[in-house]
Amino acid sequence: MGDPMTMSWADLWAARELFAAPIACAALAGCALGFLSVFIVLKRMVFISATVSQCAGLGVAFAFFVELFVGLHLPPVLVAALVAIAATLLCAIDPKRVGVSREALLGFVYALSSSLAVLLGEKLAAEAHDVQSILFGTAVLVRELDVWLVAGVGGLILLSGAWTYRALTFAIFDESASRAQGLPVAWIKGALLVAIGAMIGVSTRALGALPIFAFSTLPAVAALRIRLPLKGVLAAAIAIGAFDGVAGYLMAFRFNLPVGASQTAVACLVTIFVLAISKCWTFLNERGMGRPSNAKNTERG
């Protein structure tokens, strides 16, 4: 308790007006990205998420750069969102069209965006700290505008995801059959990609690329280990994403740690915890000590 490097919960409560916005922002981003993470993980787009979050960081650095050297003010969040959406669509194109594998394309875009973000950051002596914050999520405070943007875009994604749930899941997880049944599969896939890009774009300015990548993958990794149907997995991923964001922020505050790294570490710990519980559950079921496993009783033909 007496460690000067740590702060008490009473300190946090006393400064609640200051920290309410970043905590709310982390929770909202965690919810929306947790929802999207199920699609990202099940459709094996994890590297797209990593690349897009780096590109969003580049977008913010680029906006600072243009303002400083050209004198043109570009809203960093808007530039980040646009670059993220463009990167998502670029990464999603059929790799055969450009004559390389998807992994090669992703690797190229990731390396290019990361290096450009660092190079631009070097030219921005005054904003260098901001660029670092964006890339690794060291920002403690969040602007109110960012909270509203995250809430707006995240809320829209969750509402439209719930409203179109059946068509969305059918089109994303069984493309050929849904296309045959006349669903606008290309539009639905495009909308999902734009949603991923937009959410990563608006969240990166507020929270940083590193925790955004964690929120857009790890909640689903954990939720998919829980024996739940798809709707339950989506709900669990939303809850886990929100928990990761809030608990990570609180841990950073309590132990005076970088916020983004703390949120990412919490997301990893939650995932490990759920994986361990899931393994134990399977172990107990296999020995008949828990609820009988359905898989064991399944008629295999």
């Binding site: 409203w163 179109t164 059918f170 049944q181 006349g182 669903l183 606008p184």
Partner: peptide, 11 residues
Amino acid sequence: LSGRGCLCRPW
């Protein structure tokens, strides 16, 4: 589910 109309049918 069939056609574009099913986008507006959550249940």
